[in-house]
Nucleic acid binder design. Structure first.
Length: 505
RNA sequence: GCCGCCUUAGCUCAGUUGGUUAGAGCACCAGAUUGUGGAUCUGGGGGUCCCCCGUUCGAGCCGGGGAGGCGGUACCA
C-alpha cells in the first residue's frame, strides 16, 4: 500500500527547456523591460499585445502536404478542430493584426511588443523553449529610413540597458546584395526550383563567423563533418562557385573599406546594385545621426530566415568575458531583423512593406549580469523579530508603520526562536532588524540592529565571549522614533551600493 | 534529428572481485554557549543509488532497453 502510494506520486520537475524565474533575476528582467519600453515609446512606437495563441494557418506553420502543424511549434486542436499554435515570434502575429485592422491603423504603423514566445525545439545552453522577445516594427513604408531607424533604435536600446558604445555593434547587409551574388554563380534568387540550394548557400555563408573560410568551403561543397563525427550535407557547388562566395566573405576581413566590397559586386549585377544603393543611403543616415561608430555594413551578415527581402541587420556584443569555469566566452548575437515586404500580403494579397527587429531578452540579461557582476543586490525587507508571541499585535503595528512610511518590512511569521529569526533576516538580505523583548517594552524602546554594519564589525571578533558581549551596530531608540531611525539605515544602505529597498524596486 | 560523454543526499563526490542497515565534506534543521547572524560542540532530518527488464542465492556495481542531463552539430519560421 505505502509503496504504491509512493510510486504514484508525481515527480516535482520543471518541464525540459523551461525555467523558473524569481528573486533578483526576475527583478532584473522587470527593470530591463521597463528600460526597453521607455526607449521604444520615446521613438514613438505604440504598444501592442497579441495573444499567446494564433490559428496555425495564420502563423503559416502547417507541414507541407499535411494537415498537421510543424513540429517546431506547440500546437493544440481547438474544439471545432481548428489548429492553434503558441506564437514562435512576434512578427507573424503582427502581420495578422495589420491584415485584420489595416483600415483603422495609421500608415505607417509603428508598434512594439514585448512578451514570451515559445519554440518546441531541443533546448541548448542559454536557449529555452519559452523566452522573452522585445520587438519594434514599422509597417506600411518601403523607405530605407525605416530600416535605418530600426538599427539606430536597436543601438539606443542596448546602450540604455547599460552596455557601452564600444562593447556592441550593429552589422548591416542587404539581401539584394546577396541575391546578386547568387545570381552571379548561377543560382536564381527567385525561382522555386533553386530555393533549396539558395537556402543552403545562404546558411553556409551565415556560418562564416563560426567556422571560418575552411568550414564554409566544405559546407558549400561536399559537406562538413563536425567534432562529434556528425556530417552536414553541403550545397554541392563547383570549385569556381565556391571561390566566388568565399572570396566575397573573405573580402569583409580585408583592410579595404567594406563599401568597396559591395561596390565591386554592385558593378557586376543589378540586384546587388539596388541593395548596395539602399545600404549607402542607410550609411549616410547613420553618420548624419552620429551612429557611424556602432552601425556598419558587413557583407557577412546573412540571417537564416527566408522571408527577408531587403536590408538585414544583427546586433552583436563584442566584448569577451570569463565564465564561471574561467573560459573566455563571446556573447555574440543578441538580436536582429530586417525588411520583410511580403508577410502581410499572405493575408490580403496586397503588398504591405514592413521592417523591424527583435531583441532576445535573456541573452542580454546574461550579458548584463556579467558586465555588472557584483553590483547592486536589492535590499531585503526590514524584519521585525517576534520576541514574545503574546505581543504579536505590537510587532504587527511596527511592520505596518514602517510600510506606511514606504519601507519594505515584515513581521517574522515563522515559529522559531530568536537565533533562527536572525538567520532568516540575514538570508533575506534585510538591512536591519527590529527587536523588542520585555526589557525594551518596559522602557518603551526598541532595538534596531543594522545587519550590514553589524556583519562588518563582527568579522573582527574571534572570541566567543566577546561575540556574545558585543552588540555591534545596534542602537536603542524610543519606540515612537522607530520609523525615523529605520528610514535612516535603509537610506544609508540604499545609497551605498545596494538597490532600493522600496517595494517593487 | 544525428554524434559523444555523463547520471549515487539540496550541492560536490567516495563506494573494494557482486556480499549485512549505502558513506564523506559542504549545506539545512534543532539544542548548548543569558535574548543576537559568525566560530565551536552535540544531535537530527534527508536516498525509488535515473527507470524498466534480465543474469545471480544476492545487483549501486554485470548485460540489454529506455529516460534525463551536459557538450558538439543540424534546424531556428
Amino acid at each position: 500500500m505505502a509503496k504504491d502510494k509512493t510510486d504514484n506520486r508525481p515527480r516535482a520537475r520543471l518541464p525540459k527547456g523551461f525555467q523558473d524565474l524569481g528573486g533578483e533575476d526576475l527583478r532584473a528582467t522587470t527593470r530591463m523591460l521597463a528600460t526597453i519600453r521607455e526607449v521604444y515609446e520615446r521613438y514613438g512606437y505604440e504598444p501592442l499585445e497579441t495573444p499567446a495563441f494564433e490559428y496555425t494557418d495564420a502563423l503559416g506553420k502547417f507541414l507541407p502536404d499535411q494537415d498537421r502543424p510543424n513540429a517546431g511549434v506547440f500546437s493544440i486542436a481547438d474544439e471545432d478542430e481548428q489548429w492553434m499554435s503558441l506564437r514562435y515570434d512576434m512578427t507573424a502575429p503582427l502581420a495578422r493584426y495589420v491584415a485584420e485592422n489595416k483600415h483603422h491603423l495609421p500608415t505607417p504603423y509603428r508598434r512594439y511588443a514585448m512578451g514570451p514566445v515559445w519554440r518546441n525545439e531541443k533546448p541548448g545552453p542559454g536557449r529555452f523553449r519559452q523566452f522573452m522577445q522585445c520587438d519594434a516594427d514599422t509597417v506600411g513604408t518601403d523607405s530605407v529610413a525605416a530600416d535605418a531607424e530600426a538599427c539606430m533604435l536597436m543601438a539606443d536600446v542596448i546602450e540604455a540597458l547599460g552596455i557601452a558604445k564600444s562593447d556592441f555593434r550593429i552589422r548591416v547587409n542587404n539581401r539584394k546584395v546577396l541575391d546578386g551574388l547568387l545570381e552571379l554563380i548561377g543560382i536564381n534568387p527567385t525561382s522555386d526550383s533553386d530555393a533549396q540550394r539558395r537556402l543552403t548557400v545562404l546558411r553556409a555563408m551565415d556560418k562564416y563567423d563560426k567556422f571560418g573560410a575552411p568550414g564554409v568551403t566544405l559546407l558549400l561543397g561536399k559537406g562538413r563533418k563536425d567534432e562529434s563525427g556528425d556530417f552536414t550535407a553541403g550545397a554541392q557547388l563547383a570549385p569556381d562557385q565556391i571561390d566566388r562566395v568565399v572570396g566575397y566573405l573573405e573580402a569583409s576581413k580585408e583592410a579595404v573599406p567594406l563599401i568597396a566590397v559591395g561596390n565591386r559586386l554592385a558593378n557586376e549585377n543589378v540586384r546587388s546594385r539596388e541593395g548596395f544603393d539602399e545600404l549607402q543611403r542607410m550609411v549616410e543616415l547613420f553618420s548624419a545621426a552620429g551612429y557611424g561608430d556602432r552601425i556598419a555594413f558587413d557583407p557577412s551578415v546573412v540571417r537564416g530566415l527566408d522571408y527577408y527581402t531587403g536590408p538585414v541587420f544583427e546586433a552583436e556584443l563584442t566584448f569577451e568575458v570569463k565564465n564561471e569555469d574561467g573560459q573566455t566566452v563571446r556573447f555574440g548575437s543578441v538580436g536582429g531583423g530586417g525588411r520583410y515586404d511580403d508577410l502581410v500580403a499572405r493575408f490580403t494579397g496586397q503588398k504591405v512593406p514592413a521592417t523591424g527587429f527583435s531583441l532576445g531578452l535573456s541573452r542580454l540579461q546574461a550579458a548584463l549580469a556579467i558586465v555588472k557582476r557584483g553590483a547592486a543586490q536589492t535590499l531585503g525587507p526590514v524584519v521585525v523579530l517576534v520576541m514574545d508571541k503574546a505581543e504579536l499585535p505590537r510587532y504587527q503595528k511596527m511592520a505596518h508603520d514602517l510600510r506606511s512610511a514606504g519601507i519594505r518590512a515584515e513581521m517574522y511569521l515563522g515559529t522559531s526562536g530568536m537565533k533562527a529569526q536572525m538567520k532568516y533576516a540575514d538570508k533575506r538580505g534585510a538591512p536591519c532588524v527590529v527587536i523588542q523583548g520585555s526589557d525594551e517594552r518596559a522602557k518603551g524602546e526598541v532595538q534596531i540592529k543594522d545587519l550590514i554594519e553589524g556583519a562588518k564589525a563582527a568579522s573582527a571578533i574571534k572570541d566567543n565571549a566577546e561575540w556574545k558581549a558585543a552588540r555591534p551596530a545596534q542602537l536603542s531608540v524610543p519606540e515612537a522614533d522607530l520609523v525615523k531611525h529605520v528610514a535612516e539605515i535603509v537610506k544609508l544602505h540604499s545609497s551605498n551600493g545596494h538597490a532600493s529597498n522600496s517595494p517593487g524596486g
